[in-house]
Design a protein around this nucleic acid. Structure first.
Lengths: 340, 340
DNA sequence: TCTGCCTGTGTAAACCTTTACATCAATCAT
DNA sequence: ATGATTGATGTAAAGGTTTACACAGGCAGA
């Protein structure tokens, strides 16, 4: 009862009085069939409610028109908005998107590659920042499908990346703090491994140096981008009693931790301390004080990334290995003039 | 260069010295082939790096092992966590999940049904609260695939629903406020159309009535579940000067609006007003004051829903048309004793 | 009139599985 | 000794497309 025998191309052909080849052509290359024939086929299709069986088509054409999205955490605040962009563009071009939530588990990553190796997906969008595990194993043939990275570039590889110009964005953020009179600006979220963190720190340094402000290494603290890391780093500064007037955080989530720590110590923001984030995730406007930050054009990132991937799939060679979009300064209430 | 001719079942058969039927059986019904044969096949598979071509398999078996998830808004805070549950369970059972972001656009909903009608997906998870548009059109055959609703039940239909017991949860929430001494409790987010809102209002009413507290209609305000609706409703109460001591909101997002309105008016929370939400979305713990709310077991909801859908796909008849899970009271800092 | 080309269509192969059915050998019951 | 049953495997069909190639007819150019 589930399948009531769908109409096939043969049914359509019979009704239209043509061969199946002609039906196929009428659908896929309309100009190649005579007007009158095309009309009859179209009518037969409407009459039967025919839809091309995607499986048969994929089998024959060796391509599924599906894109696999590999993300370490579907709940990540950056993820969902980029996903919308990816999905919109894919849908517009007749592609579907498949979600793989890997939780950074190598086993799950490897498992998801079955979609690639079994021809169920033609290309890959990587949120993970690294090539998926499970390539080049047993059989030795590391058959990499076309792929594009978003959110985080893939370290030492030439996988094209679409994202925000982290260096420039962070520089602008720091400039903003400087324009408000800040000189002692902390950077929270240093990392030696994550490319995003490294670039944002560089932007911070560039801005300070550009204004002749000496970099105080004691104001640069490690962090892995979590709320807890922001909180801990802030506490650490109070313990060591080396304090800035402003905190530039590697991302909004970290900034939230900083705000929590400062609020817990009963400081008034932004009168006593300024805090800046990066990303403009949803809650940035809800937290109190609402967060001044750099907005990532996430929708656009998703669309551009999908566009690039589909171009790759069509065999176009990609000139640009990186597409860097501009982030936008969003001024809210967490940054104030230094000394009132 | 993209496809370097993957190994097929024939290659494996040749190496193992058996027929392709035996290879297929060795993979899918291992008990049906002799131990020694199975060993040879397994080795041949390893040697060639063979993976079953999912398209050929789906074509033959008339099932794709894919589930389509139709959601009006991928960015919805409830969505991503349920998705994780859906995805985890699907993945565990060898299914993949396809995302369809409909934005409540009938055209997009209809378009996504091509995945169903073209056999690219076997079942449907509905976040939308209504049957997809586009069924029963031209051809007249409204061929509904197996489906399960989450987040919102599908109004007047017998589509199975997995979610939280909204009536009971809301009752518990109201009880909590009552236990803190509140008697004048507002309900923000009344709606005559949305099932979730209706049930939560009923739970609110039941709790008050159970404690002999008269219901004051002036304390029940309309709202569509957005932050703005919460803000506006609160303002409205101040204008009319009919004030509660506590606000029970239809969801966290609405509660946020209430908090924003109260904070803007310089009230101190929870000393002067208490606010409760529902859902426990991510930012609930970050907002200030952190929000006391009812937590939805979203991961569990996703898993149960997928489990139910897969059961349906196997032709099992479903006894329960609804799976109602319990929500959990999360006490934070937005609710206080009345009168200190 | 013949040759060659173009347009429109049909035939059949290929894509890669799963599985009903057939076959064969070996075991078992009578 | 014979017939029935069981177990392991092979043969071939079916699933629904796309597309290379062949073919037929019409038409233009010589």
């Amino acid at each position: 009862m589930q399948h009531q025998k769908l109409a096939t191309i043969e049914d359509v052909a019979a009704i239209a009085g043509v061969s199946i080849a002609t039906v196929s052509r009428a659908i896929n290359e309309p100009t190649k069939v005579a007007d009158e024939t095309r009309r009859r086929v179209t009518e037969a299709i409407a009459q039967t409610g025919y839809t091309t069986n995607a499986m048969a088509r994929s089998l024959r054409m060796r391509r599924s028109n599906m894109i696999l999205i590999l993300a370490p955490d579907v709940g990540d605040p950056n993820f969902s908005n980029i996903l919308v962009g990816l999905e919109t563009e894919a849908s517009k071009r007749g592609y579907g998107v498949l979600i793989g939530n890997t939780q950074n588990d190598p086993a799950r990553e490897a498992d998801y590659l079955r979609f690639i190796s079994s021809n169920q997906a033609d290309g890959l969008i990587l949120f993970t920042g690294h090539l998926p595990y499970g390539y080049g194993n047993d059989a030795g043939e590391s058959r990499l499908p076309p792929m594009v990275a978003v959110n985080e570039p893939v370290s030492n590889s030439d996988v094209p990346f679409v994202g925000v110009d982290n260096f420039e964005g962070s520089r602008i953020a720091a400039e903003h703090l400087i324009s408000q009179g800040h000189r002692r600006i902390a950077f929270i979220g240093r990392s030696t491994s994550k490319a995003v963190n490294i670039l944002r720190e560089k932007g911070y340094r560039a801005a300070l140096e550009g204004h002749g402000i000496a970099i105080d290494p004691r104001l640069i603290l490690d962090g892995d981008g979590t709320t807890e890391s922001g909180r801990a780093a802030t506490e650490h500064m109070f313990v060591r009693d080396v304090l800035p007037t402003a905190f530039l955080c590697v991302n909004d989530v970290t900034a939230l931790g900083v705000i929590i720590a400062l609020t817990a110590r009963r400081y008034e923001l932004p009168r006593q301390f300024s805090v800046m984030g990066f990303d403009d995730i949803t809650f940035a406007s809800f937290v109190s004080p609402s967060l001044t930050t750099m907005k990532q054009p996430r929708l656009k990132i998703g669309e551009e990334a999908m566009d690039l991937l589909l171009a790759l799939l069509q065999g176009k060679s990609v000139e640009r290995k990186q597409v860097l979009l501009r982030s936008e300064l969003i001024v809210r209430n967490s940054v104030g003039q230094v000394g009132r």
